[in-house]
Amino acid sequence: MVAASEKAKRIEVADLRLSYGGREVVRGISFDVYANEILAIIGPAQSGKSSLLRALNRTLDFVPGAMVRGTIQIDGEDIARVRDVEALRRRVGMVAPLPVGLPLTVYDNVAFAPRMSGVRKRAEVDEIVERCLRRAALWDEVKDRLDLLGTRLSGGQQQRLTIARALSHDPEILCLDEFSIAIDPVTTMRIEDVLRELRSQLTILLVTNLTQQARRLSDRTMFLLEGEIIEIDRTDIVFSDKPANRMTYEYVHGVFG
């Protein structure tokens, strides 16, 4: 943790509790995320990983019965007090487990967020669309068919399209929720390369069920189990033979989970 703590804190989570209608899914967790790191969040199903991401961009607001206690600060600002929630959501890019192509063309999918935030000039939108598609390593495959419906692309292309879309509003933080669940290994590798390159510009939160993916990609890894942090440390330590917690060792080595 020594090397990491020298960096600026981008997200600070303090005693966060999330519950749905009284059922607590995240039970008082505290951790920090530093600028320009990839933090992997691993853990079996139902351990609160996805809820955590949804709290981060406040889309949890729309879930009936969802309750948030504790604080999440992004760049020192408590997100519960943010007035302009839409602007907050634009600061956090979100990639869902299954690629959700909006029922729009490739171009319009990427142009959606910039237009929502008031970018009107065609040339400006063009520039954003090309830049984001290039950053998501999709440009060369779709540049000649930007007016194809996004949903007509292959699964792997669609997932890269959602990444391009998540980058289109120039976020400081990129959250990926099990992005590789529906795509082939080759495409997964390509996207992982994309993420390694993006690290220099962004902070990345990577929720994944694939422990090996966390090992390949992340700087630090957090192990969540039933809504509690079992361990958070440098990835090489978490995946070593002697992590701080016995359960971490058992999970990452496939004893349970």
Binding site: N57, T59, F62, E86, A87, R89, R90, V92, M94, A96, L98, V100, L102, P103, F112, A113, M116, S117, T162, R165, A166, S168, H169
Partner: peptide
């Protein structure tokens, strides 16, 4: 998913 995606994009 459409709703979530659009809202996450700041709509």
């Amino acid at each position: 998913g459409y709703r979530e995606a659009a809202l996450a994009l700041g709509a």
